[in-house]
């Protein structure tokens, strides 16, 4: 894995990646496809893992890999514009080069605990990014999993990331149910209106599913409460944590909470594991 030094390259030394495609998803989210300069993927990854993207001279940051591992030719990152680095990334164009290192962290247990289970994805806003990788993986290994429910919400219709893919591909797939919601009613939207946790309650899923939860901290908190009310146990819910990271390999110390390093031992945690951590995230 990333620990392999056989290439003589330290884990902190990045590779050069070329941006081959940029898609504007929402007013503040763009998806970037990144390849090796000679074409092809920079590395293999698992759903839920992250990579460090860097614009030299600007900054470096950890981002979820949005594309499924089953995609052969590129890695995709959906990035919301919210700071110095992401601002700069949004100003790049196709053909620009950045540096990439990774993949880092653990991944959703798609090969073990999640296998054969009915899955419930709950995502809010840009929180869809890490889950999309899992959804893609599950779609490509459909026989290994039970039913799939995707509950996705955002502030408004135009803030729904990957809207075309959701309506065009996912909702048409076998055994996949998509439930969309937006925070406030608007013209041209005949779907559900309301916050994700409320919609989750309304839909009332059976508690034998395994839930994968990702979104803003406040949404995670209330959705988790709702899931508990619905009879889920914390062992059935997976989520991701996000903290400041620099090295990505559990050494630089800043993403340390309790005895865990979010960059190395996370970002994916089962909710009962999170409960064991000191309340500092």
């Amino acid at each position: 894995m990333s620990g392999c030094n056989c290439s003589g390259r330290d884990v902190l030394i990045p590779q050069v990646g070329v941006i081959t495609d940029i898609r504007t998803e929402t007013p503040d989210v763009k998806s970037f496809r990144v390849c090796a300069p000679g074409g092809g993927k920079l590395f293999e990854h698992m759903p839920g893992q992250c990579a460090m993207l860097c614009v030299p001279g600007v900054s470096e940051g950890m981002f979820s890999i949005t594309s499924s591992p089953t995609v052969q030719d590129y890695q995709e990152f959906s990035i919301k514009r919210c700071g110095m680095l992401t601002d700069h990334l949004h100003s790049l164009s196709v053909g620009d080069q950045i540096t990439v290192r990774g993949p880092y962290g653990n991944h959703f247990p798609v090969e073990s605990e999640l296998r054969g289970k009915d899955l419930l994805f709950v995502a809010g806003g840009i929180g869809l990014a890490p889950l999309r990788s899992v959804i893609g993986y599950v779609s490509d290994h459909r026989a290994d999993y039970g039913t799939v429910d995707i509950l996705y919400g955002s502030r408004s219709k135009e803030d729904l990331v990957k809207y075309d893919e959701i309506t065009g591909v996912w909702s048409k797939a076998d055994g996949v149910n998509v439930h969309l919601t937006i925070d406030r009613a608007e013209d041209g939207w005949d779907g559900h209106v309301g916050f994700v946790p409320a919609y989750l309650k309304e839909l009332g899923f059976s508690s034998d599913k395994t839930a994968l939860l990702c979104g803003p901290p406040i949404m995670i908190r209330f959705s988790l409460e709702t899931l508990m009310e619905m009879g889920f146990s914390k062992k059935q819910v997976y989520t991701t944590l996000e903290l400041r990271m620099k090295c990505g390999v559990g050494k630089c110390g800043r993403c340390n909470i309790g005895s865990k390093y979010v960059c190395k031992d996370g970002p994916v945690f089962r909710c009962d594991e999170i409960d064991a951590l000191p309340d500092e995230y």
């Binding site: 902190l12 030299p56 001279g57 600007v58 900054s59 620099k246 050494k251 630089c252 110390g253 800043r254």
Partner: peptide, 24 residues
Amino acid sequence: CQCYDIRDYDTGNGVQRFRCWDSC
């Protein structure tokens, strides 16, 4: 104590990435 920070320095003809001690 081994926490560190990773930073960039623009030398005028390239960007040097270095790490330095940081403090929690």
